[in-house]
Amino acid sequence: MTTAWYRPTWDLALDPLVSCKLCLGEYPVEQMTTLAQCRCVFCTLCLKQYVELLIKEGFETTISCPDAACPKQGRLQEHEAHRVHGGG
Results as ranks from 00 to 15, higher is better:
residue 22 L to E: 06
residue 21 K to D: 06
residue 38 C to S: 03
residue 1 M to I: 10
residue 70 C to P: 01
residue 56 K to W: 10
residue 14 L to W: 14
residue 27 Y to E: 06
residue 12 L to R: 15
residue 23 C to K: 00
residue 19 S to Y: 03
residue 79 H to N: 12
residue 3 T to N: 13
residue 54 L to R: 12
residue 6 Y to N: 08
residue 85 H to F: 13
residue 7 R to H: 13
residue 67 D to A: 04
residue 41 V to K: 11
residue 35 L to R: 00
residue 7 R to A: 11
residue 11 D to S: 12
residue 25 G to N: 07
residue 42 F to M: 01
residue 87 G to R: 15
residue 84 V to E: 00
residue 50 Y to Q: 03
residue 66 P to L: 00
residue 57 E to S: 10
residue 56 K to E: 11
residue 46 C to Q: 03
residue 45 L to Q: 13
residue 74 G to S: 03
residue 57 E to G: 06
residue 57 E to M: 09
residue 25 G to I: 03
residue 44 T to S: 09
residue 72 K to R: 09
residue 49 Q to T: 08
residue 36 A to S: 12
residue 2 T to Y: 10
residue 41 V to G: 05
residue 81 A to H: 02
residue 18 V to C: 01
residue 35 L to I: 04
residue 50 Y to C: 00
residue 1 M to W: 10
residue 79 H to P: 06
residue 19 S to C: 11
residue 58 G to V: 05
residue 43 C to T: 04
residue 68 A to L: 12
residue 76 L to Q: 07
residue 4 A to H: 13
residue 40 C to G: 09
residue 11 D to N: 10
residue 45 L to K: 11
residue 27 Y to R: 05
residue 49 Q to Y: 09
residue 85 H to N: 13
residue 83 R to G: 10
residue 69 A to H: 11
residue 22 L to A: 04
residue 14 L to N: 12
residue 3 T to L: 10
residue 61 T to L: 14
residue 2 T to M: 09
residue 80 E to Y: 02
residue 6 Y to D: 12
residue 73 Q to M: 08
residue 59 F to N: 15
residue 77 Q to Y: 09
residue 26 E to P: 04
residue 84 V to Q: 00
residue 45 L to W: 10
residue 45 L to S: 15
residue 27 Y to I: 02
residue 68 A to E: 13
residue 81 A to F: 05
residue 33 T to C: 00
residue 43 C to E: 01
residue 35 L to S: 01
residue 34 T to A: 05
residue 68 A to W: 04
residue 35 L to T: 03
residue 46 C to K: 02
residue 29 V to M: 08
residue 46 C to S: 07
residue 62 T to V: 14
residue 57 E to F: 09
residue 28 P to H: 07
residue 1 M to R: 10
